[in-house]
Amino acid sequence: MDSFPHRHLLGIKGLTEPEITYLLDKADAAVNISRQREKKTSTLRGLTQINLFFEASTRTQSSFELAGKRLGADVMNMSVGNSSVKKGETLIDTAMTLNAMHPDVLVVRHSSAGAAALLAQKVSCAVVNAGDGQHEHPTQALLDALTIRRAKGKLSRIIVAICGDVLHSRVARSNILLLNAMGARVRVVAPATLLPNGIAQMGAEVYHSMEEGLKDADVVMMLRLQRERMSGAFVPSVREYFRYFGLDAEKLKAAKEDALVMHPGPMNRGVEIASEIADGPQSVIEQQVEMGVAVRMAVMETLLVSQNQGPRA
């Protein structure tokens, strides 16, 4: 495959195995750019990238910003408060306003599922979904895949256990889609209150015990549990959650000896993951951050350069 047929990156859904491999290969090459002393290229010189974040984000926004800058684009950050009364209206109004400024790519994060897709219908540039509600976060799944592929050499037939608040997680949905597309075996491990309805039909084996769910896993991917969800609404308390679902040395023993420990961040130490594990030898949490920049460079370059040679979809 030598081109990428999509105009936007709105989700992992709809991407084929060769398309994902194409992005990962490109990202692999982009890793080296960030490791050089001279990190700036001219690939996107003269192009404008606008980061439109309706939801607060530190790492994703800065990762996209760095990715754009390292490719030579002009990057503008728009942080829009989420307090606007009518979000639907605000979203489209903001999009139309920005569209009039002729950006080449819009990176969007929004608290509502489907927001990026809605925006993509209204603007004339490429749109990258940086997280829409509890729906998808495709660049996170790509950076996770890149991290795994670089460590394990492959994605097919590996066992990935995604643990924690799957119900509210866009990261989990994108990862389930991507890992299935690449032939990995996906498990989810969580209390039943933190799993979406029909999870067993979404391409994941369901476990309610860490010991069983982590058995022989190659990758243990922890998810963040939001504070407001840990005091009785979905789980009774931090102490009980950590006791049964927090990743500590004891529970990690069930996984393969060389299993990777991942977390999309930001972590709640002592809630879903023990500090000794987050900082331990199996943790690749920092590599995930590094791969994040590379993956976003690859995505931006693919949408803005490569696709111009190929047919648009």
């Binding site: 005091s231 009785g232 009774p236 308390s237 009980e240 006791r243």
Partner: peptide, 15 residues
């Protein structure tokens, strides 16, 4: 079943 029997937040069933 719920903290303080208030009917809003579940207790630590496992523990």
């Amino acid at each position: 079943l719920t903290k303080g029997l208030a009917g809003t937040e579940m207790t630590e069933f496992g523990l």
